[in-house]
Design a protein around this nucleic acid. Structure first.
Lengths: 229, 229
DNA sequence: CATTTATATTACAATCATGTTACAAATTAC
DNA sequence: GTAATTTGTAACATGATTGTAATATAAATG
């Protein structure tokens, strides 16, 4: 509880608005205004998550990210200027866990902060839970493979993301809105029934009898869930 | 339920179309046409969410946002013209939670409104009562499941909404009118006896002997209530 | 105890949510 | 570039849920 978050940006107004909003959500906020300071504070305080701008005085975000990655495992979210795909790829290669393009909404930022913290919280106890087993199914989170009775299923990206989201929280019912937000992304505003069709396609591959699903269950009037156990 | 949303825009057609669509979704819509009015109404009515245009007479959206942020915590979504203004939303220490660039689709707007309201709803009540226990019954609010002696009951949406409403206020008697209003919704103009039938169906699933109910009790001449303890 | 009134019960119809399919658009591979 | 694949959208089909109405039963009243 009460996670420490380090915000690194040389523009004070940005740091201020981030501090304001993160504090409001109950996080403990640290700030650094250049690359050197970021590294000092990060090593000393060991924050649970780092928000790291790329454009920084003294040493840039890439350099900071690379150096920090050697010492700490906390998630690093890069803040990048609009459009530059290069940044994104480079950042992720250097060990960043996520990136957000400016300008971003507070809602989007909060969602990503929470998602990254949640991911850590889930994987922490019991070390690295790499493979999820549910009935005949086996989800290998690392290699993006789902096996049924040992045989690998050929799932597409969306199908994989959906079954991963549902199965890691088996038993819990999610509305279509929630699934669109979590699986499709914070900025996706497509048709809500897209979820139905993706569920249909997933069932086609996962279920013995897609018309009588035993894994991905419909909760009428609410949404879908993955059957526990 | 039935959240209040304040729409602030000086263009009447925009306010009208927003009012129409938000009302259709069941929100209670307030409108303001300039900055001063927006502040007055917001402070007086304490809306659950504010849609705030930037271009406004008297004082602009930035100014309104900043002033409101000192007094209220409800999410504020800024409506901005394409391009430059977006950066200002972030740069100035405003406290906006999200922004939408014009022109926007209704679908996108609705999605953002809902997402922002959901975010608030989740973070607000710190101690969320997850499971309600009453006699042999167990209501799991999170997973939309009602269990009797541990066995899950297959309740429909309405049945679930009804038992949830009654059981969270056990002992209190509700008239059919009140139940229609609260469980079915304010804009529902159906037959009042619909309640009886839904109660009947609920008893069929919940009670040991539906003809002699021990959970959902009839208060003749008044309505129904859930027996306490 | 007959009459009135309220609620229970049942059956059926209307509505609505989801399943299903086909096709278009977007993305990726070649 | 074109072809293949994935993904999203839309239309239609299906079936469960819900609402309505009609009848039966029970309670209240005089």
């Amino acid at each position: 509880m009460n996670e420490k978050i380090l915000v690194v940006d040389d523009e004070k107004p940005i740091v201020d608005i981030l501090r304001y909003n993160l504090s409001k959500e109950g996080y403990n906020v640290l700030a650094a205004y250049d690359g050197d300071e970021a590294i000092n504070i990060a090593l000393k305080e060991d924050p649970d998550l780092i928000l790291l701008d790329i454009m920084l005085p003294k040493q840039d975000g890439f350099s900071v990210c690379k150096k920090l990655r050697e010492k700490i495992t906390s998630p690093i979210i890069m803040l990048t200027a609009r459009g530059e795909e290069v940044d994104k790829v480079l950042g992720l290669e250097l060990g960043a866990d996520d990136y957000i393009t400016k300008p971003f909404s507070m809602r989007e930022l909060m969602a990503r902060v929470k998602a990254n913290l949640r991911r850590i919280a889930l994987s922490e106890p019991g070390g690295e839970e790499e493979i999820i087993r549910l009935g005949d199914l086996e989800l290998d989170l690392k290699s993006y493979v789902v096996r049924k009775k040992g045989k690998p299923l050929d799932l597409t990206f969306r199908e994989y993301e959906l079954i991963k989201y549902l199965s890691t929280q088996a038993g819990q019912v999610f509305t279509r809105e929630k699934l669109l937000e979590e699986v499709w992304g914070y900025e996706y505003y497509g048709d809500i029934r897209t979820v139905d069709v993706t569920v249909r396609r997933l069932r086609e591959k996962v279920e013995d009898d897609p018309a009588n699903p035993t894994y991905i269950i419909t909760k009428r009037g609410v949404g879908y869930y993955f059957r526990k156990q």
